[in-house]
């Protein structure tokens, strides 16, 4: 049983998430008595292939082509269809990154196969692999399985497996080039410059305390309350995406996968549900406090202290208590 893991890279560096998916592959291989190989697409990627070859893999498969120098959905899909056709893997595992979101469904559709996306984990039940994935923004989980033939395409959520559990190889594993002629493939999208918006005004990554506010605050005016709390705590203000999308706070206050990553000593999440895209940006915080009226909110999964209640009652009381402490 061949298990393939697609390695992702940008600017000559492998994405950390790749190691997590190799771990997923190594676990799955142990369960199903299979072998794990990494698949690497690009140009001038010898160094990356060698880095991968240091892990306990069956082999590292490399497709090098000028047309893969930069990621495009057409180029990646065409190359992977051919890899899958030639090598016939049973599983193709990926991380649920923005890049995989961009091409994995296309690859699956081109193959006429299903993609089970954003998985948190899996279990093997009577020989069948059952995947668990979040629905309703993580409030509920679902068990899902393939109702179709291989290849099985799966993406795993960041953090679903621990990169540090990766097994190293005692000696480098073979690197094998797969010859593919991509010249007839039309590449319809043209990637242009990668950039950041004008210099960020605030750097939350060094803040010791952050009061983060979510959609539960309901309106821009109510932010006054958050400002008072931040002042009483001597904290910076952060926010979830919808607060910034609505223009209530500038984009550079956004915390999460498309915003900043922070790890303060204290993170207060107020009216934030705890969707994975937010959580990846703050789960490294030392002490996490969540205030939310919904006891099922996923944020409570990572909070050290939880308060189930109305923020409009709790926050004023907290401001008062902090002021008393100062006096």
């Amino acid at each position: 049983m061949k298990i393939f893991v697609l390695a992702e890279h940008r600017d000559g560096k492998l994405n950390r998430a790749t190691w997590e998916v190799i771990v997923a592959g190594q676990h799955l291989a142990a369960h199903l008595k299979g072998s794990v190989s990494a698949v690497l697409l690009g140009r001038d990627i010898r160094g990356l292939a060698e880095e991968l070859a240091a892990k306990r893999l069956h082999e590292v498969l490399v497709v090098e082509d000028e047309r893969l120098a930069e990621y495009t959905p057409d180029g990646y899909t065409a190359a992977l269809i051919e890899v899958i056709r030639q090598e016939a893997p049973a599983f193709v595992l990926m991380s649920h990154t923005y890049q995989a979101r961009d091409f994995a469904p296309k690859l699956a559709a081109a193959l006429g196969k299903a993609l089970i996306s954003d998985c948190l984990g899996y279990r093997v039940d009577d020989g069948t692999v059952i995947y668990t994935r979040p629905i309703f923004q993580g409030k509920i989980h679902a068990d899902v399985r393939f109702a179709d033939d291989p290849p099985y395409l799966v993406t795993f959520q960041a953090g679903a497996f621990r990169a540090d559990e990766i097994e190293a190889a005692s000696e480098p594993v073979p690197i094998r080039a797969i010859p593919i002629d991509l010249s007839p493939v039309p590449i319809r999208t043209r990637p242009l410059e990668v950039f950041r918006e004008a210099k960020q005004a605030v750097d939350l990554s060094s803040a010791e305390r952050i009061v983060a506010v979510g959609r539960g605050i309901k309106s821009e005016e109510n932010l006054a309350l958050i400002r008072q709390l931040a002042e009483a705590l001597n904290a910076e203000i952060g926010a979830s995406r919808p607060v910034c999308d609505s223009g209530w706070l500038p984009m550079d206050r956004q915390i999460g996968s498309s915003g900043q990553t922070v790890s303060p000593k204290l993170y207060l999440a107020i009216g934030i549900s705890g969707a994975i895209q937010h959580v990846v940006g703050m789960k490294g915080s030392r002490t996490i406090v969540a205030i939310n009226k919904d006891p099922e909110a996923p944020i409570f999964d990572i909070a050290d202290y939880g308060i189930v209640g109305d923020l409009f009652e709790i926050v004023p009381a907290l401001i008062k208590a902090l002021k008393q402490l100062r006096e």
Partner: peptide, 18 residues
Amino acid sequence: KQELMRVFFPTKAKRTEF
């Protein structure tokens, strides 16, 4: 091509102090 078998509320992994 993929079958939704069951849905459930996740058990919390961390012991939050409420």
